[in-house]
């Protein structure tokens, strides 16, 4: 005790310096490559910036007005909400279901866990490639099986039918993203209150009741944080849509990231692209900052901060 006290007194002044020095490299890289672009992106969003002219006049909120008043934006916004909302809901329901199912298996648990994580590690570009090939309208395996088995009479146009394209993409993304939910819920189930479950069972509670009143409340923090994370990731996800449809047909699968990329690098309207990026930044910030607040209060109570 005494020695610790003595150390504690001598330490602070001496210790502060290396602490700051150790943070310096990370701070410099993050400031240059993340901090600066965020600020510069905001600045750019107030200027008209195209490749056509070397003049970049200040237009105030012009880019924002242009985006928000264009008919396209409503569609893109709705697409993003469907893509994210329906997508995360599917991932969640299937992920939780699979985690509970595998957790109750007596044999083959380990095997199923290994298999179920595979889609998560397959690169998004390759996932897009595999499914685009499976879902080809004329020579794809899925259309072949659907027609051979008599479920459909004609080739289903999974990508070129604007009504179908977004849902096709959502299903492919579900294939890829379910493993993350599965993993998180499985981790959460490892600490489930077995004694409470047993007690509830002895009191005559059925499987559904045990799930509703014991397991689900136990999992709810994990579900909440996984929900926030996957919502942000899904909203930001670019690779799958880009490689499979590039946002087409006729913007039917264009979400915010796709729109931002195309505005800049296909239509060369950097100002409008930056303005849309600011909007999507604000959406993500409004979801993640309350979540981060909660994490910070957790850290404080754990004594890390």
């Amino acid at each position: 005790m005494i020695s610790m006290k003595a150390q504690g007194m001598a330490v602070p002044a001496m210790r502060r310096q290396p602490a700051v020095r150790y943070l310096a490299p990370a701070t410099v890289i993050m400031a240059a490559m993340l901090g600066f672009p965020i600020v510069y992106n905001l600045v750019l969003s107030f200027y008209q910036w195209t490749l056509k002219s070397s003049e970049h006049p200040f237009v105030g909120l012009g880019n924002y007005i242009e985006i928000l008043s264009g008919g396209k934006f409503v569609q893109i916004f709705v697409n993003s909400i469907i893509w994210t909302g329906v997508g995360v809901l599917l991932q969640m329901v299937i992920g939780i279901g699979l985690a509970l199912f595998v957790d109750n298996l007596v044999r083959g648990k380990q095997f199923m866990r290994i298999i179920l994580l595979v889609p998560w590690i397959i690169p998004g570009v390759v996932t897009a490639l595999m499914w685009k090939w499976l879902l080809q309208s004329d020579v794809g395996l899925i259309n072949y099986l659907l027609m051979e088995s008599g479920i459909t009479d004609d080739n289903t146009l999974f990508f070129s039918d604007p009504k179908l394209a977004l849902f096709t993409l959502i299903l492919v993304n579900t294939w890829k993203a379910v493993p993350f939910w599965f993993l998180m819920i499985t981790a959460g189930l490892q600490t489930k209150p077995d004694d409470q479950i047993e007690a509830a069972r002895l009191d005559g509670a059925g499987v559904v009741q045990v799930f509703r009143h014991v397991t689900l409340p136990h999992l709810s923090p994990v579900i909440a944080s996984t929900g926030v994370l996957t919502t942000i990731w899904t909203l930001n996800y670019f690779d799958l849509i880009w490689v499979m449809t590039k946002g087409g047909p006729a913007n039917a699968t264009t979400t915010l990231p796709i729109f931002i990329y195309r505005e800049a690098f296909e239509f060369n309207d950097f100002g409008a692209s930056a303005a849309c990026a600011v909007l999507s930044f604000l959406i993500v910030a409004s979801i993640s900052i309350p979540y981060m607040r909660k994490m910070f209060s957790n850290l404080k109570s754990e004594g890390v901060l």
């Binding site: 600066f36 672009p37 800049a264 950097f270 930056a274």
Partner: peptide, 27 residues
């Protein structure tokens, strides 16, 4: 500096990459 630094560390994991591409491309 710890708290602001941790805030930046956390937030940059959620930030859309699309916020970076236009400013970095121009720079």
């Amino acid at each position: 500096g710890k708290k602001p630094f941790l805030f930046a560390v956390l937030f940059s994991q959620y930030m859309p990459i699309t916020t970076l591409i236009v400013p970095l491309y121009i720079a």
